[in-house]
Amino acid sequence: MFKRLMMVALLVIAPLSAATAADQTNPYKLMDEAAQKTFDRLKNEQPQIRANPDYLRTIVDQELLPYVQVKYAGALVLGQYYKSATPAQREAYFAAFREYLKQAYGQALAMYHGQTYQIAPEQPLGDKTIVPIRVTIIDPNGRPPVRLDFQWRKNSQTGNWQAYDMIAEGVSMITTKQNEWGTLLRTKGIDGLTAQLKSISQQKITLEEKK
């Protein structure tokens, strides 16, 4: 169930391209415009997507990853294993993690069937560096609404905000991946996880038929 919630949630996290980005210092504006741009692209490019579902990787690479804190999220997933990894191991892992996100997020976007969304009203940021933004996803086919909290983090150097995690039903996506990959990290280390991520990233994206 959580895996499905995570995939549905990713439908609204794909941010804007650099040329049309919203105010990078306001995570609420980023979330709002990102959702609108993403849904528009999914709707307008269905012919290309249906002809070649792996085209979704391109959308992810162009529109999402430049505005997601990939390395920060990847380091959180590694936890204690990050500090013990060599620079070469980290570089290989982050490259594999990025390719994994292209496949995983692309597969999530393949679930698009006309969903709509509501974003919580903007709250004062103050001096906060981590801000959760509640998004409610509404399914046109009558499924119950899904309420999610996207975690946005302020870059201490640039002042810009980027998304790095999502919490559904009190469970963090980062925590879920830590639990899912924990045994592999304990037995085969970061190299074993890197190899698995490379394998997963090679899987073809498949479209979910409308139910």
Rank of each mutant, 00 (worst) to 15 (best):
A73H: 03
M7F: 05
K211P: 09
T116P: 10
T86R: 13
K177S: 07
Q196V: 15
N26A: 03
G106V: 11
T183F: 07
T136F: 10
L101H: 10
E180K: 09
L101I: 06
Y117M: 07
L30M: 07
T25F: 00
Q48N: 07
P144V: 06
L64I: 14
Y100I: 01
K83M: 02
E169D: 12
I137G: 08
L30W: 04
S199Q: 14
T86Y: 08
T25N: 08
K43A: 03
N26P: 09
P121D: 11
Y105E: 14
Q103R: 09
I200S: 10
P87D: 01
T175N: 06
Q107E: 01
Q62F: 01
D127G: 12
K37G: 07
V135D: 02
T194W: 11
L197V: 02
N141D: 13
K37P: 06
A75G: 03
Y112W: 08
T136E: 09
A18P: 03
V171S: 14
T20C: 02
L65M: 14
K177A: 05
G170W: 06
E122C: 04
Q24W: 03
F150I: 12
D54K: 09
A92P: 10
L42R: 05
L10A: 03
V146T: 07
A34E: 15
K71I: 11
P66D: 02
S156K: 11
T175I: 02
T194A: 13
Q46F: 15
N44K: 00
Y164C: 11
F2W: 05
S156P: 04
F97K: 15
A108T: 10
L78V: 02
K211A: 09
K198Q: 00
G192H: 11
P47A: 08
K154Y: 00
K71G: 11
K128N: 08
A51P: 07
F39T: 10
F2S: 04
G142T: 10
A168F: 00
L11D: 00
Q202M: 11
Y105S: 00
D61I: 14
Y55L: 05
K37M: 15
P121N: 13
I200E: 11
P140Y: 01
M31R: 03
E122G: 10
S156W: 11
D61T: 11
L207W: 09
P87Q: 15
L64Y: 09
Q202R: 06
A168Q: 06
E91H: 12
Q89L: 10
Q151G: 09
A163F: 14
S172K: 04
A92Q: 10
G142A: 13
T158Q: 15
Q203C: 06
D139M: 10
P124E: 03
K43I: 11
F97Q: 00
L5I: 15
A22R: 12
A120G: 10
A19W: 06
K198S: 10
D139C: 12
A9D: 00
A163S: 09
Q178C: 04
W152R: 05
Y72F: 09
V8R: 04
F39N: 11
K43E: 08
G170S: 08
Y164E: 13
I205Q: 14
A14L: 10
L197Q: 02
K3W: 02
R50F: 12
N155Y: 04
Y164I: 04
Q36D: 03
Q151S: 06
M173I: 14
N179L: 14
Q36P: 12
G126D: 06
H113C: 14
T38E: 12
A110E: 06
I190W: 14
L42D: 00
A51T: 00
D61P: 03
T136R: 06
V68F: 02
L101W: 11
K29L: 02
I200Y: 01
Y117Q: 10
E208C: 13
V131W: 03
G106I: 14
P15S: 03
A92N: 02
Y28F: 14
T129M: 03
E99D: 11
I130S: 12
A195V: 10
A75C: 08
A85E: 10
A19F: 01
Q162M: 08
D139F: 03
A9T: 10
T20Y: 07
K188L: 08
L11V: 05
G142V: 08
N141L: 11
R153E: 03
R4D: 10
E91Q: 01
T187W: 13
N44D: 14
Y81V: 04
Y55M: 15
N44Y: 13
K210P: 11
V131Y: 13
G106N: 15
G79Y: 05
Y105G: 02
G192T: 12
L197H: 04
L78E: 15
P132L: 08
V131A: 04
